[in-house]
Design a protein around this nucleic acid. Structure first.
Lengths: 202, 202, 202, 202
DNA sequence: TATGAATGAGGATTCATTCAT
DNA sequence: TATGAATGAATCCTCATTCAT
């Protein structure tokens, strides 16, 4: 009777993902209080009750949307970073490029990320941790750059926070009007100009 | 018999302001759906029904809070810009400083920008216009700087979009942990480094 | 300073009438709870507060609409009845004809009359009295007819109640489609057939 | 995943009926705006929210109460008519008797007819159709009577409209004071006298 | 007396959550 | 486990009525 336990688990994971995707799209388009769980259920082709099998409540679903999306991005970035062959400049470029690419591919989800969850401290901690991971990733690149004399930045931990902001600013009402490549190049140039040591060769 | 405009712009402008102020305080502290109109009414020392004399509904009140805040920011920036004594660098500093100050007071402002699309097209147009005003303001500063040989930026219109992003990034879960002055200084330094012409004097 | 007391009284009476007319139109078109006092005030070109100068409250206004309209009809009928030259048959014809004419002229008001006020007993008494006046008027005609051997009716007080019902039935969704003269004739014929002694002349 | 019709016609038909019954009792006793949905819910032993599962809103519930009542009346009349054993006179008696019985139970029915215009055109059409059904039912009885030489009536379609008017007139402020049986008998006698051929046997 | 802005009690409606099936 | 009908607490909003001007 239980022979398909594992298969069911897989099935569940798929359903969970389906819900997350549907929810991400809705949360990205409308403010929290306008997203109805019935809409989410319908969009995910799932019963309303099923949502509660996978998520504790509406807030948990919301946070999970953020969390899973962000995790995916970080995971993706880590993959690229691992190759130590790259120097700080190349890594920084990778981060910015990938973040923009990610934002373009899943604009809904990326938009959601930016929201400040002003709720319970328990769930928030989890989310904060993930965010810090992202920040640390960038920070470490900058620090490495600094130690190599390539970058200069009195507060790398602050700079690390700006990166998502860049991307986000760029996407707001700009997706249609601005060429993606041009945008990416400009952001890259901007960041590099801001933290790269000016090579005053005399 | 004189009919009052449907726009509900008049009546007692002072009372309208009182409500806006009270509402702003509450909306800044809690997310939309946790702010009760009864609380707003009480905070404004006004009857619940009075809110509906000045605003169409809760959403209208919310948008008005943000809109009036944003307008005030732009107005304030314009005032400072007018004094032509200042050069582009000083102006840029003013913009960033004031925007940060504003963002601290109105943390939800940027929240709106994402969800504006889900409101009516009329409201959205109003917002887009205001947003463009803000962008143009910054862009003009950069352009002036460029023409004076102080700044260098291949795409001032893109840079103009980043500024709010900076501020926003800085505020996300950072209000408590980071010294506001330090943050401001760093952003300033960052932006200037990014667009200021490197004076390679040999 | 008080020299225009009487003139003011006249003015007031006009304003009161203006309000009643406006209210009648609205109460006839919509159910009680959908008629807003602000609408009445606007329709009467009067301030909302003014309504309370002339009427105790919404219910009082409603009853006054009924009362004044009904009074006018009764007054009109009495005028015609006074001429004792007419016999019961002619009088009955006058009542029916005039009631229909009245209903056609002020359909709104006439429609309102038919509503059962299910409120306070005090106001209701006044209204009941007026209604009884109307009923008595008709009843007396029938009774006179009976005593003259022209009519036969075991319960004239019941028949008296049917008359408005006839008119009303006829008007419901029928004003446009049915010729008024034909309707009047038919009702007349119907009532007469019902209560006139069948003159079996052998 | 089966979608439920928006018409909200299905679900638990029994529960829907329970709500209708409870609501009917309340709407019969009090005017629309004095009937609270919380009372309806309690009377139906149902949660307040459940009302909205079966009815769009308060008005829809109200109309449904009346509509279902009216439909039941017509259905009931049809059942009786079907038995062809009865002649036009008996049928007319059934109609009047049943209509009076119904009117006692649903005194507000006729209220609706006046205000239907202020509702949407869809609802109105439904009502008009039902009303016509009722009128046709009566008309056909009269016409049959005429063709059998029992009745005489130049305009059966007008007479058909009077019947509800009779009943209504009789009920206005008369429920308490008049014996129902006497009223019924009198109406019956009245109508019969009005349209029955006077058998002048010489 | 006339006005209409202010009021707040009152009630309709929503929607996250539960639970019987 | 999946479902969606049932629930009712929560809250927005209405509108008759008041009262300062």
């Amino acid at each position: 009777m239980r022979k398909v336990t594992k298969a069911m688990q897989v099935l569940d994971e798929q359903k969970r993902a389906k819900i997350l995707t549907a929810a991400a799209k809705l949360f990205a388009t409308q403010p929290f209080h306008k997203v109805l769980l019935s809409d989410v259920a319908e969009a995910a082709s799932v019963g309303k009750g099923t949502l509660y099998t996978y998520f504790k409540n509406k807030e948990d679903l919301y946070l999970s949307v953020l969390y899973s999306g962000f995790s995916r991005l970080i995971h993706c970035l880590r993959d690229r970073m691992d190759e130590e062959a790259y120097g700080p400049e190349e890594n920084m470029e990778v981060v910015i490029r990938e973040t923009i690419r990610f934002a373009y591919q899943t604009p809904h989800l990326f938009e959601v990320m930016r929201t400040v969850p002003s709720w319970g401290p328990v769930e928030r901690a989890k989310w904060d941790a993930k965010r810090r991971e992202f920040k640390d990733l960038i920070e470490s690149i900058i620090c490495r750059g600094i130690s190599q004399g390539i970058f200069i930045d009195p507060h790398p931990e602050l700079t690390a926070r700006y990166i998502p902001g860049f991307v986000r600013s760029a996407l707001i009402d700009g997706i249609e009007t601005i060429d993606r490549e041009a945008l990416t190049d400009h952001i890259l140039r901007f960041v590099k100009a801001a933290i790269t040591v000016k090579e005053d060769v005399c």
